[in-house]
Amino acid sequence: MALPVIAWRTILRNAGAVVSASGTASEYAASNVKDFRSFTLWKAAAVTSPQYIDVDLGVSGAVDADCLVVVNSNSVANASNLKVYADTVTPPTNVVQASYAPTSDAVEFKTFTAPGAKRYWRIEFNTGSPPFAAAPYAGVVMLGLKMSMPEYIGPDIDPFLYDVEAVTPRTVGGHALGVLLRGVPRRGSLRFGADAGLARSFLTSDFNGFLTGRYLRHEPWCFQLDSGDSDFSPARWLRRPVGGAAPRQPVGGTYARFMVPLPVEEAMMEAAL
């Protein structure tokens, strides 16, 4: 079993960062990938390979990153590989994540070895048999340093839970006329710290930054329960539900360790069954 990972930082939103692309279809600007909205897209202007998104962090803005998140793309459907470059020059040529085939168009999460602080980053979409069948697109792209949880989370999250509402009218004779389904965002709770709690040092540094910088702002983030298990490794795109709270509860009556229950819901609706 691997420990849970939260990816919430994104260098694309750093102050002074300029996001551009190899080309953009009309009304599908490159800047759309950094707004946390999976429904606003960057779309390439052509189907030639490769296409890419570039990030220039500015003269004094170089930062490090060790994970990539792509939400709502057509990479799998389009047989597109992803590749990440990070460099001190532009165009960047230093490969930090070799070309690989993503496994999800809904939420793709990939970790790689952090190269150190770099100014120029590139996320490349390429295909082994160009051109692409369709212009590559992506709703959200995040690059940043992941937050690895020091412990496993509590059992309150059911990774297989689906909520589906259905309306099934019947005739006088009892015949079912049809079914209208309505998808409901999957909801649950991530209970960090379980019974033993999280170390106070973790809570007051990294985790607190996540809570205040992302969770409490209702902005979405990426979560992977267990990279070592194929059932639990698919990444999720989550956010705090309206009305959700994250009370930090001291464990054992002291403040040396804390338990934090995080109510969550899917930030991007999945098709109802």
Binding site: E27, Y28, N32, S38, F39, T40, L41, K43, N72, N74, D105, A134, Y137, G139, R182, G183, V184, M268, M269, E270, A271, A272
Partner: peptide
């Protein structure tokens, strides 16, 4: 809002 994006390759705001 309460449903999947109908056309993921277009900008349709939920």
């Amino acid at each position: 809002t309460n449903g999947p994006l109908p056309f993921p390759d277009q900008e349709v705001r939920p």
